[in-house]
Amino acid sequence: MNSTRAESYPLRRRRVVASLLADRGEMLVVAGLGTPAWDATAAGDHALTFPLWGAMGGAAMIGLGLALARPERRVLVITGDGEMLMGLGSLATIAVQAPANLAIAVLDNERYGETGMQATHTAHDVDMAGMAAAAGLPVTGTVESEAGLEAAMMALRGAGGPVFYTIKVRAEDLPLALPPRDGVELKGRFRAALLGQKA
C-alpha cells in the first residue's frame, strides 16, 4: 500500500465537482454519502441533486433506476471510492442494462473520509475503472491530473454510456457543506422539480 501518495494528488475534489456541475442544465445528480455529498452541496444545493446520508453501496443503483425511468435526461452519479467499492456488483448490473444516459464519477482519494481517513482498497492499487471496463461499460478511464480531466468531464456530461471514470483526488480535510438531512424532503423536492407538483 502507498499510504501517502494521495496527499499529493494534484486534483482537488471541490473544484472537480464544481466543474462537473457548472451549467448543469437538465442533468439529474445522485451524490454518494459522505464527502461527495458535501462536494455537491458546496457546488450549490439543488432540487435535482439527491444527496445520500446513508445507503452505502447504493448510489450507482439509484442512478440506474433513475436513468431507466428518464432516458431523455442525463443522470450523473458522483460518489467516493469507499462507497463504490461496497457496490461493485452494481457495475455488472449496470453493464447489462447499458443505459446510454448514465455516468458515474468516482472521486478517489483512496480513503474512507468520514471515518478517519483509513485506506480503501484503491490505496492498494485496486483499479475500479478497470473493473467497470471488464464488466462491459463502454466508456471508462482514470484521470490523475489536469491532463485528461477536460475529456473525462466531457464524457461524463455527454458521452453515450454508461460512462465510468475514476478521478484521483487529493486526500484532504475540507469544510463540511451539508445538504438537508430529511430524506422525505430530499425525495419530495427532487420529484416535484422533475415531475411537477403532481408528484
Binding site: 447504493g58 443503483m61 440506474l64 433506476g65 431507466l68 425525495k187 422533475l194
Partner: peptide, 10 residues
C-alpha cells in the same frame, strides 16, 4: 436502491 431511483424518476 434501483427502485428508489425509479421512483425519483416517476
Amino acid at each position: 436502491a434501483l427502485l428508489a431511483g425509479a421512483w425519483l424518476g416517476g
